[in-house]
């Protein structure tokens, strides 16, 4: 019986962990091209979720809402790049840190003013009646989270490996100056990475909302753990964020079961501190080797 409960906890923790991984993956995308990340990424998740909910309330069918919500995410990602990142990168300053935090704060106030402070349910046509698989309860909604996460990451990874545009994306990540000499515009590539990162954030919002509800504060809990995942896994391995995301999800689920829900943030934060102390490049991060 006990092992069944542990298994149950592990499965639902792992599914949450996949959402952390997806948000962390959004950090990786922009870090690869521009060595910058959007500290307001959590608010981007939340705003996209609210926007998608509004689409549903306006009568849009669920399957049409998804592309609508993703498009909103892309647009918001581009806004962040234009308003908070591009100018500071041109001046080689770290100003994007402050500006993206401010973007997050603005997004938070905007959400409170537009949609109110209350958490709202997010209807989904996918059933939340539990299925019993090997004695473990899993709902189709939870399964849809896993499918959605792997679908989005899979499509983006395919794009990077199989299309010339994707290879150009990798080229800018590897050597921005050399990529420019090939006729690849670094500016456009960075825009692309922010657009994709926004799309990933929107997908995370759409996937998680039926489980957690939508509210202005939904971001803060998610983003902290997404940071932990990104730092522990390292900022250049998509495979790494999935593994570490699942690990942190499982650990926090078990911690809250055994020690009480007040302790659920601890494993993620402990791993974060450990990673920063022992392996700042991340467990899956490439240790930079320079050939002279």
């Amino acid at each position: 019986m006990n092992s069944l409960i542990i298994a149950q906890m592990a499965v639902s923790g792992a599914l949450m962990g996949l959402v952390y991984a997806l948000i962390a993956y959004g950090f990786q995308l922009t870090f690869a091209t521009s060595k910058s990340i959007n500290f307001g990424q959590g608010e981007l998740v939340m705003l996209s979720a609210f926007f998608s909910l509004t689409l549903l309330n306006l009568g849009a069918p669920y399957w049409l809402m998804i592309p609508g919500g993703l498009l909103f995410g892309v647009v918001m990602g581009l806004v962040v790049e234009r308003a908070c990142v591009r100018l500071t990168l041109e001046q080689k300053s770290e100003g994007w840190i402050l500006l993206t935090i401010i973007f997050g704060l603005l997004g938070f106030s905007a959400a409170e003013n537009i949609w109110g402070r209350d958490d709202r349910p997010f209807p989904s046509p996918i059933s939340s009646d539990a299925l019993h698989i090997l004695g473990i309860n899993v709902t189709p909604v939870e399964i849809s989270v896993a499918i959605g996460v792997f679908a989005v990451m899979g499509v983006i990874e395919l794009f990077k490996r199989k299309t010339l545009l994707g290879k150009a994306f990798e080229a800018v990540s590897a050597d921005r100056d050399a990529a420019e000499l090939m006729g690849i515009s670094a500016t456009h590539t960075i825009m692309l990475s922010y657009g994709l990162s926004g799309m990933v954030a929107a997908m995370a919002g759409i996937l998680i909302s039926p489980i957690t509800t939508v509210g202005p504060t939904m971001a803060s809990a998610l983003i902290l753990k997404a940071f932990s995942v990104a730092v522990v896994a390292g900022l250049d391995s998509g495979f790494g964020v999935v593994v570490i995301g699942i690990l942190i999800g499982v650990l926090e689920s078990l911690t809250s079961y055994y020690l009480g829900s007040g302790w659920r943030e601890t494993p993620g934060l402990l791993l974060l501190i450990l990673a920063l102390a022992i392996r700042p490049n991340g467990v899956f991060g490439k240790v930079s080797i320079r050939k002279v």
Binding site: K162, T163, L164, K167, A168, A171, D177, A178, M182, I184
Partner: peptide, 29 residues
Amino acid sequence: APEGRKVFGPLSVEDNLLLGAYHRLPGFL
């Protein structure tokens, strides 16, 4: 072809060559 060669280290040799022709090739497939 800049000083220090500046090849794209993580990418394959063939990808490097393809990227050389980036501006005159279709972007997707």
